[in-house]
């Protein structure tokens, strides 16, 4: 399978990355090189093979349903580009 410029632009939008016309052109070639390379996986017979879900067989760890952390609002917003009274500031989302 290969992608065209239109698909690349759609994927870029899904990934929330702004691309210029030139970027999209260049990426199309690069992406097709990679997709061409991974194409060889189709020749592998995977009938009856389960997809891997966990690389190390282990039981999912569970922890007690108790509060172990919190009251760190100032720490959480400390690195944000724009904040106000421990809220993250973003451009207006709801009209």
């Amino acid at each position: 399978m290969s992608v065209d410029v239109k698909t690349v632009k759609r994927v870029a939008h899904l990934a929330r990355i702004a691309v210029s016309e030139d970027d999209a052109e260049r990426m199309t070639g690069e992406l097709n090189a990679i997709l061409g390379f991974v194409e060889q996986l189709n020749e592998v017979d995977v009938s009856g093979v389960e997809p891997m879900t966990s690389v190390t067989p282990m039981e999912m760890k569970k922890r007690g349903d108790v509060v172990t952390d919190g009251n760190k609002a100032a720490d959480i917003v400390a690195n944000a580009p724009a904040t106000d009274e421990n809220f993250f500031l973003v451009p207006k989302v709801v009209e």
Partner: peptide, 10 residues
């Protein structure tokens, strides 16, 4: 497909 192949590699 890749995750199935991954199991075969393992």
């Amino acid at each position: 497909q890749a995750q199935k192949v991954r199991n075969l590699i393992k």
